[in-house]
Computed example of a mutant assay.
Amino acid sequence: MGESPRSGSGSRQLLLRIRRGLFASPLDTVITVVLAVLCGGGLWSFFHWVVLQADWAVVVENVRLYLHGRFPVEQVGRSWSWLGLLGALFLVTLMPARMLPRPVLRLLPLLWILILPIGLLLLAGGLGLEPVKSRFWGGLQLSLLLTLGTVLMALPLGILLALARRSSLPLLRWLTTGYIELTRGMPLIAVLFFGQLMIPLFLPEGWTFNRVLRAVLSLGFFVGAYMAEDVRGGLQAIPRTQLEAARSLGLSPLLTIALVELPQALRTALPSLANQCVASLQSTSLLAYLGLIELLGISRSILGNPDYLGRHLEVYIWLALLYWAVCILMTSLARRLERGLNVTGHH
């Protein structure tokens, strides 16, 4: 069968585009060839090492530690249950809206809010489940738990801070601005150390927070300051004519914020907010230096085993792939939400 005229024309256009982009001049040709040789050689060496030289036993033999940390073996089904629920929620959310019943679509936001307390109930114990102390939590389960807790705390806090920074009350505006600028000017590792050491000093006598909750509070207050600036940027993008129209319709300031300003501001700020969520996951790796055994902490403990000495490259490549996979899921979720909001906005 002969090639259709349309496909032949498309092939010629593709070849012409490649020639213009990569071989437009002798210098472009030399640069393209040199880069192709360097990249090809690097990829060949890397895959040769991955297939023939790397010892992946350090990963295969410790998959349970990477997923569940030191969670008791007899209770590990609870950790699997929560990770399975979270994975199913990701998949359902990423499915096209036309494939989901309307009640499920309406329940999705509530399910994302409830997944954190469900995880705490399954991991910590309660309602007949045997208690498991937080020092046994670890690996992927702990990293995801910290990220969810941080986001669910930081987003409402960021919205309130953004609104307070635009307040007509000078004292509230100054205090909010000072908090945001002070927090954004501090390194995260210092905030985490302060949270672990200072939060107990502000609690009433006899009260205590475990290290996981202190980490969530520290990350939440830190990320909330950045989210506040993202939301404030979205608020500033709203034309003043819309606010004047809302005022002319008799909407109160509170209704104007809830029905006119915030929906549009959050839609505009969504890409930046998604970046903060991904950064929150990556920031959990710093907690390894505070004794929490999340993904990086697990890797450090594995590399301390004499049986795996010298296997740093395998461990950190596997760790990078894990972080990359979760980050890809989070960004896909953000793009799915952005498309849904855009469709809603057009209607």
Rank of each mutant, 00 (worst) to 15 (best):
G40H: 12
P306R: 13
P253D: 05
Y323A: 05
I115M: 12
I180N: 04
F23P: 07
A215M: 06
L67S: 07
I189C: 11
A164D: 00
G139M: 03
L43G: 12
R70Y: 09
N275L: 15
L65M: 04
L192D: 14
C327E: 05
A162V: 00
L303D: 00
L169E: 01
L160A: 12
G149D: 01
R20S: 08
M198S: 10
R102M: 08
P72S: 03
I328A: 15
V76A: 09
D230I: 07
S218R: 03
A215S: 13
N275C: 12
F90A: 09
Q13R: 13
L259M: 11
L146D: 03
L235F: 04
T177M: 09
G304N: 14
M95K: 00
V216R: 06
R247A: 12
P156V: 03
L329V: 07
C39N: 07
A88H: 06
S9Q: 11
A190K: 00
L287I: 14
W49P: 01
S134A: 09
R6P: 01
R70W: 04
F222M: 04
V59A: 08
V34K: 03
T150M: 03
A237Y: 02
L321K: 09
I293V: 15
L219Y: 08
R267I: 05
T208K: 12
I159A: 10
Q264L: 15
L35N: 02
G224N: 12
A269S: 11
G220N: 11
L94I: 07
L121S: 14
Q141I: 04
F222T: 15
G2R: 06
I302D: 10
L94C: 09
Y316I: 10
S272C: 05
P26Y: 03
P187A: 07
L100K: 08
S299L: 14
G41N: 05
H347W: 11
L161V: 01
G345I: 02
G149T: 01
E61C: 03
W56D: 09
H347S: 00
V92K: 00
L38S: 03
L321Y: 06
P263F: 08
T32P: 08
G128K: 07
I293M: 15
I302G: 15
A225P: 02
I189F: 14
M186N: 04
P271M: 04
S252G: 08
L83G: 05
C39W: 14
S25K: 10
I18P: 02
M198A: 14
G8Q: 15
F209I: 05
R247S: 08
L160W: 10
A57C: 06
A88T: 09
L333A: 13
L89T: 05
L303G: 05
